[in-house]
Design a protein around this nucleic acid. Structure first.
Length: 228
DNA sequence: TCGGGTGATGACCTTACTTCA
DNA sequence: GGTGAAGTAAGGTCATCACCC
């Protein structure tokens, strides 16, 4: 069991550092918050009108602090993309999750948006689909962990039973055939195999496998040898 | 009023490219 | 001319803010 968790940690350490915590701590929140940089509140605000064709001469970063009628800084008007704009962006995202400058420019022209807005949309889209994916994987791993825990419990019980068995004349076995319980993970198909080796004629043989979650299998290249 | 969805921003990191000793 | 360090720009992720439904 521990072996399996260690493998999880190894495999996910590069792209999902909180998954091992999720497994170990059921109450764990999926959105860990780090200390704020303290600078995020200073956003420059600007009125955006999606129905306005972006002025090609205008620098996107050329933003002045506008003032509201009462003298304070103007509130940013939230841009809402139209259904058609969203549809085209989604379609483009399905085709390619990152845009090169030409594609960005072309898409911006087509959507009557600024290239920066297209860029931001893609950034958010990538971040949020990654978040969703991580959450799904997290749920899957939680369930899988539960399954393995239950399986482990049963096997422990079975092992306990086998240890208390008295080897009589009908179920005697040579020392090298003593019941052994071993868990191994096949490097190719990623199945965890737990096997109780053959005891004697009539004795039970247990072979239990727990398939790795599909997304988990897809991440690793199979090696040459498969034990299953 | 509150929470979720989402557009926008700043900080920081990586990578490619250029310059220079 | 080849090479490594330093500088710079572009584009990415991440965390967060804040508008709007």
């Amino acid at each position: 069991m521990f072996y399996i968790i260690l493998n999880f940690m190894e495999i996910f350490s590069n792209n999902c550092t909180n998954l091992e915590l999720t497994i170990a701590m059921p109450g764990f929140s999926s959105s860990p918050s780090l200390p704020s940089s303290g600078e995020s509140g200073g956003n420059v605000r600007k009125e955006l009108d999606i129905n306005q064709v972006p002025d090609q001469e205008e620098d996107c970063m050329e933003e002045e602090e506008e003032e509201s009628p009462n003298g304070g800084p103007a509130r940013r008007k939230k841009l809402r993309l139209t259904k058609e704009q969203s549809r085209l962006l989604e379609e483009s995202f399905r085709h390619n999750q990152t845009l090169n400058p030409k594609e960005k420019e072309a898409l911006a022209v087509e959507l009557k948006l600024k290239p920066r807005q297209v860029e931001v949309w893609f950034q958010n889209r990538r971040a949020r689909s990654k978040l969703k994916q991580t959450e799904m994987e997290c749920e899957y791993l939680k369930r899988w962990f539960g399954t393995l825990t239950e399986q482990n419990r049963k096997l422990q019980k079975e092992l306990e039973n086998l240890r208390t068995m008295k080897p009589g004349p009908n179920n005697a076995y040579p020392a090298h055939m003593a019941p052994t319980l071993s868990s191994t993970m096949c490097p190719r198909c990623e199945r965890v195999t737990t096997a109780t080796h053959v005891l004697d004629k009539g004795a039970t043989t247990t072979a239990t496998t727990a398939a790795m979650p599909p997304f988990f299998q897809a991440r690793r290249q199979p090696s040459a040898a498969c034990y299953n």
